[in-house]
Design a protein around this nucleic acid. Structure first.
Length: 566
RNA sequence: GCGCCCGUAGCUCAGCGGAUUAGAGUACUUGGCUUCGAACCAAGUGGUCGCAGGUUCGAAUCCUGCCGGGCGUACCA
């Protein structure tokens, strides 16, 4: 797999493999690592691994291997050394390093070649507020989708959300309270820029009423049913329907604006109202076949048989829950795309929920369950690990985060630059490994300095500025690199391996970690080495060009803009 | 109770089987712009890698048990 990425890397692996086979008659896969620069460009601990199997001290094994390797690899490798307990270190010849760096931004893993992937992420619910969690999951999902696409997949980005369900019943109840009944014409009085907030407040009101007021709860349950009925009867005319469709559209308008601001786009939006029908139908069919069971008037899947927990798919009102709608969603995705992989990205609060849903699907459509992957990330917490709650009023809205970043950028740079804001916010979320909860401090996390998105943009703009100033491109590319030049070239050449790893792990943070190190390497180079007018101008210009290409390419994977000028 | 995830410098995080000093950023102290953009660079202060066992030539990294935190655990999404 690595053959196409790094010919020299592959050659070292192949040669080692063969030599080990010849000397010790052992068939092993040789892994190469990127060691500290002081040790070389590639390293392997294969001798240590072999020690037990071969019954010889690791250093002695390493010596035998190296003796065989010297001649075979001498064209591309200038030095092979043994260090410590038996590590074998390889130092590449400079021209090879330059060649590898020159193609770094074009070498992508082919992991997903010819694969169709449906990537579902973001998943906001109409009638509810877009909060920090949505921002996080959207940014992460977008980056993961970009990674798979870079690895050759045909990626279909889709979105899913609840335009029907209890939260809608709650909101509709509160809207009717607010408007004094079914008066859709009164909605026109709500100013455009206040609509999203208006709905959010009413959702909270409805939610509280549901919990505290038994009568209200009854009414909300009935309204929930009425909303489903609107869809089955395709009612757009009744006053209630008009209120629903109008306010639903308000939410979608707010989503569109949000995504536009983030520069993310979706190919398709699956509203739950669409997946409900097929989900309901599928669950009922499988109920007859025994996959699902009747229990207390509801239809459930008995996950306990599989060491999981039991969940309700159709409630005792006969309405599909989120579970049934998710079943429907999988069916619709399959109908629409015939995917090789259906990737769903959500917060880890849905981990076990999804496991149960997929286990139930496995009972009647095993090939779909098998192709489904659920990638989860942590929750967004506020400083002090405080959990956000719309009821407690300590919610961090997605727009608040973007606005806070815009203010910070304005203060720091003196002007308003949307690219800087996007870089600050996206990078702040993407730089952490996916998995654990992340603490988001709206004031400090939108840093423009240090390990931040704007740092990368600045490092890119600086490089571009140099490239514009180099007018004389005459001169030969040096065969030997100076130490600082070599360090930069070496770092650039690592890029394909980093992308490979990020794709394999579906973890965009590997890209962030690398890009920051790369930019840091460049900034150090920049500090001590002049490009314009230098007697090594041609070589250095090439290095700066390769560096800028890789940085830009990496930022593109994260969907962070890389402007030439800031 | 059970299941999943997580405990690494004051704070926010990389590192997830290897290299005699565990890395960044931030914060704090200090030095560097008549020279390609100082959103930068350099130096210093700061850590019993939650605790205890085990596996290994070697453990922050793998296994087990505790402790602490988050999430989930039938009619929400």
């Amino acid at each position: 797999m690595c053959a196409k990425i790094q010919p020299i890397m592959h050659k070292i692996q192949q040669t080692l493999h063969q030599v080990i086979k010849n000397i010790f008659n052992v068939d092993v896969e040789v892994e190469l690592a990127r060691p500290d620069e002081q040790f070389g460009d590639y390293a392997t601990n294969i001798a240590l691994q072999l020690a037990g199997r071969v019954g010889q001290p690791p250093r002695k094994i390493a010596e035998q291997l190296v003796e065989e390797l010297q001649t075979t690899l001498q064209d591309g490798v200038s030095d092979i050394s043994i260090a410590g307990p038996g590590f074998i270190n390889f130092t590449l010849r400079d021209f090879l390093l330059i060649n590898a760096a020159a193609v770094a931004s074009e070498q992508k893993p082919k992991t997903y070649a010819n694969k169709t992937v449906v990537a579902e992420y973001s998943d906001p619910n109409p009638f509810k507020v877009l909060h920090a969690g949505h921002l996080y999951t959207t940014v992460v999902g977008d980056a993961v989708a970009n990674l798979l696409q870079a690895a050759g997949a045909k990626v279909h980005r889709v979105n899913f959300g609840g335009d029907v369900g209890l939260h809608v019943g709650k909101t509709m109840w509160a809207i009717m309270q607010e408007l004094g009944g079914e008066h859709p014409q009164k909605l026109a009085d709500i100013p455009t820029d206040e609509r999203a907030m208006w709905l959010t407040k009413l959702y909270v009101k409805g939610n509280n009423a549901y919990d505290d007021d038994a009568d209200a709860k009854q009414q909300i349950v009935q309204l929930n049913k009425r909303v489903y009925d609107l869809h089955t009867k395709n009612d757009h005319e009744s006053p209630f329907a008009q209120m629903y469709w109008t306010t639903r559209q308000w939410s979608y308008d707010a989503f569109d604006e949000f995504y536009k601001r983030l520069h993310v786009t979706f190919e398709k939006y699956y509203p739950e109202s669409q997946t409900a029908e097929i989900g309901l139908q599928t669950v009922r069919e499988q109920l007859a076949k025994g996959v699902y069971q009747q229990s207390d008037g509801a239809v459930v899947f008995d996950g306990e048989k599989f060491g999981l927990h039991t969940r309700v798919f159709i409630n005792s009102e006969g309405l599909p829950t989120y579970e049934a709608k998710d079943v429907g969603l999988v069916m619709l995705k399959w109908r629409d795309y015939k995917f090789d992989t259906s990737l769903v990205i959500t917060a880890n609060e849905q981990q076990e929920y999804m496991t149960v849903v997929l286990k139930s699907i496995e009972q009647f459509a095993p090939e779909l369950a098998e192709r489904s992957v659920h990638l989860t990330h942590g929750m967004v917490k506020m400083p002090g690990a405080v959990k956000m709650s719309s009821r407690k009023g300590n919610i961090l809205r997605a727009t608040d985060i973007l606005d806070a970043a815009a203010d910070a950028a304005q203060k720091a740079t003196g002007d308003k630059n949307d690219d800087t804001v996007l870089a600050a916010v996206k990078y702040a979320f993407l730089k952490q490994r996916i998995g654990g909860d992340i603490i988001y401090n709206p004031d400090e996390s939108v840093s423009l300095e240090g390990n931040s998105g704007p740092y990368l943009q600045y490092a890119h703009a600086r490089a571009c500025s140099i490239l514009q100033k180099v007018v004389d491109i005459e001169g030969e590319i040096a065969k030997e690199l100076e130490a600082d030049e070599r360090t930069l070239a070496r770092k650039i050449s690592e890029y394909p391996e980093v992308v490979q790893k990020a794709v394999a792990d579906t973890m965009p943070h590997h890209i962030c970690v690398y890009l920051y190190e790369l930019a840091q390497t460049f900034n150090r180079f920049y500090e001590h080495n002049r490009v314009v007018g230098s007697d090594r101008q041609a070589t250095r210009k090439l290095l700066v060009q390769m560096y800028a290409d890789v940085l830009k390419d990496g930022l593109a994977l994260l969907n962070i803009p890389a402007p030439v000028r800031l």
